[in-house]
Design a protein around this nucleic acid. Sequence first.
DNA 1: TTACCTTTTAACCTTACATTAACAAAATTG
DNA 2: CAATTTTGTTAATGTAAGGTTAAAAGGTAA
Lengths: 234, 234
Amino acid sequence: MEEHKKRILLVEDDPNFGTVLKDYLMMNDYEVTHAKNGMEGFEKFKKDDFDLCILDVMMPYKDGFTLAKEIREKNTDVPIIFLTAKTMKEDVLKGYKVGADDYLNKPFDSEVLLMKIKAIIQRKATETISDSKQFEFKIGGFDLNSKLRFLKYNGENPVKLSPKENELLRLLALHENDLMPRELALTKIWRDDNYFTSRSMDVYIAKLRKYLKLDSKVEILNIHGEGFRLVVNT
Amino acid sequence: MEEHKKRILLVEDDPNFGTVLKDYLMMNDYEVTHAKNGMEGFEKFKKDDFDLCILDVMMPYKDGFTLAKEIREKNTDVPIIFLTAKTMKEDVLKGYKVGADDYLNKPFDSEVLLMKIKAIIQRKATETISDSKQFEFKIGGFDLNSKLRFLKYNGENPVKLSPKENELLRLLALHENDLMPRELALTKIWRDDNYFTSRSMDVYIAKLRKYLKLDSKVEILNIHGEGFRLVVNT
DNA sequence: TTACCTTTTAACCTTACATTAACAAAATTG
DNA sequence: CAATTTTGTTAATGTAAGGTTAAAAGGTAA
């Protein structure tokens, strides 16, 4: 039923607590990336798309607030939950100022955390995503609408695309005429880079080529060992 | 943009605490209606439009949860904050199930409450711009009046819609020609996203399709794994 | 209570998707 | 060149999601 598991970035320096929490969240059907400090947290944040960030406030090198500010600069929407020490009122207030969605005092009840996560993620889902522009691409004679997942040729023939077909074509379009590295598609779409996912991707490339045959000016070229290139000949 | 003070419905049976809290909120520029029990709370809720409800959980006659349910039947959007006794974990969980936006353990810090209020009201303000009061829709040859819950085709044949049919069609109409995510309908209408609510929704989609068959230009398309799309072909 | 309306659950069937296997064809390497 | 790796392509398979109808369960008012 789920299109994809919701992804959580957990930044927590205490290795024991962090691992336990990660496992608990994973048991509850979330995909969790665990970073052990603020630096690492920001690196991982940049590399991936998350549905929620859970940040410990007290961390060496870079505290949760600083990290939150950096995250907010990149992304104004992703929900943030802070884990603060008990009774640190100032932390709570500071957190809200930085744009937190919620906070939890340690030690906290895990079920309550789960409910908060659910509530926050659902809340975000409710907010209408109306920035349609980034979902529409023109590829030669084709129009790709990657939100509604269809591909039209010359205004007619709307072909439905499967989620993977759609994502892959969208990635190619984002790199039009340029190299779209294999690895990029595998990590972004398949979230795993191994022999099988790689073969699976090749199957999808074949499918896309079939769709794109309608316009002889459009083709997907392979760059051996590197990736693919969506070219539009003029 | 907003010209009126934000209105808060405060339902709290302890007269001392209630009065103090009311005064504090008023000092901070909110317009506060104080009800001393659940009955009175519901009466006042019906008489006015509030931007936020703050409900004590423990109250004689009618507790906060029961009141919240009644409020939710009237209004699926208004934010609700519960005041619960410290350490009553079950209360917190129950609150979220009823559709609470947040909760506070008594005794709580008043500044924290203020921050929460601000955060929640602001959140709703950004959300509610587009889908504000809109109850009448033209869908191809149909007229939907979702306040009176009927659907007319060509001015004739007024079909009565059940509450769920109505809400679902309204959501679809709000997103006409665009994706109406499954998740959105489930969280907004069913308030829960699981296998059964999802199947229930599919049943309603089938019912709506039956009604809409009268106009061959109107159809509900599925986007596998994402949601539905109400399209009007021209 | 019956009667009626609404919603959920169940059942059964169809369609959509992603993965894997299998084999062919290029490209690369030494 | 032969050997190896990478890519191209089609088909088969298993699973999940959606379509539809009917029966069960819940609710409400006469």
